[in-house]
Amino acid sequence: MKINAVHVWQVSLPLNEGSYRWAGGKSVDVFDSTLLAIDTDEGITGWGEVCPLGPVYLPAYAEGVRGGIQKLGPHLLGLDPREHAVLWQVMDDQLKGHPFVKSGLDMAAWDILGKVTGLPVATLLGGITSREIPLYRAISQRPAEEMAANLRSYRDDGYRRFQLKVGGDPDEDIRRIRACRAILEPSDKLVADANTGWLPADAMRVVNAVRDLDVFIEQPCLSYDECLSIRARTTLPFVLDENIDGLEPLLRAAHDRAMDMVNIKLSKLGGLTQARLVRDLCARLGMLMIVEDSWGGDVATAAIAHAAASTPVRNLFAATDFNGYVTHSFADGAPRRMGGTMCLPDGPGLGVTPRRDELGPPAFTIA
């Protein structure tokens, strides 16, 4: 089996809530997603998707995905997409870094392997531990009372795990955390995610002010050392996200006991192949995990579902149904939220089929 073409589409994903806000006044109204298809000489097609959270969150941006694929695509023609290690070696040889560019290509290769073997990707990633995947809901940054009301509405819809977007004014963040925790049940889970937005002094003010609450603190500061200094001075459970972008930083953080939970984003790591390595190591180290991506639609959400469904149940804090945040669906078979969970898609591979007639012609094709 050989790759004989790569097709790429740009897909716009407007948000149900109109906009999504996080630390530092950053926001997005319409997500710019890249959908791709890898065709093979045996008539099997694999699908992938990459959707950065705008250009100001991680070192990734939408136009960079498509530009990187234009550079990489010609080097993939003629390769066997089932040989993931070979595919990754070629991608690394031809484009240093830029894991977000490689993520969708890697995802599509796994989709092909699943279709060839007749197995879901979750089985190939280690085995299905659960077909019902717990979800968390991200609560966009707003005044405290509005965030609490928003959280309450999603709790009424069935969510039991929530991630508050904080990382702004520390006094307002303290009010946000307290207002939201106050309306939750003891069994509900709450994460206060600063997305690197606090200075160390501000972070210490917040964690000291909420130390009596049941709340996780996620990525309070920009640098790893700053986060580690906050971790050392709080008893609240700690999450790292932006600083964990590969095996090496994970190993360092594990050695330093820098966190209790890791946020695994597929495109931050370069796709399912690298995410599986990080996930399996986290499981062996006894860490909790959030399994998700930067953002995405139906295909990215399906890949999240497969990665989460093959994660040990005791280690999986939650996953994300990003296609439930946006107004545009473009694929059949995509996972959908039911209460506070989503189910693994049926069928081999990722189990989703984008509707080509709705997508229109590709932005470009490499063949």
Rank of each mutant, 00 (worst) to 15 (best):
V50F: 09
R211K: 15
K189I: 14
A203D: 13
H84K: 11
R336Q: 15
L199E: 15
V239E: 13
A5E: 05
E358Q: 14
C282A: 15
V207S: 01
G297Y: 04
L266A: 12
M259Y: 14
L350Q: 00
T45D: 07
F31W: 12
R82I: 11
Y61L: 06
G24E: 07
A85R: 08
I139T: 01
Y325A: 14
I366W: 00
L105N: 01
H7S: 13
R178E: 12
T320Y: 10
R356Q: 12
K96N: 05
P335I: 06
Y325L: 14
L77E: 00
Y57E: 08
T353V: 10
R175V: 03
A309V: 06
D171G: 06
S294G: 13
G340C: 08
G271A: 06
G118R: 01
M287G: 10
L269P: 02
A5P: 02
T353H: 11
I69L: 05
R279H: 04
R276K: 15
T320H: 14
Q219Y: 05
H7C: 04
S329F: 09
L222F: 15
L222Y: 13
R131Q: 13
G296K: 01
P59R: 06
H84W: 12
A303F: 08
A300S: 12
M287A: 15
V50H: 02
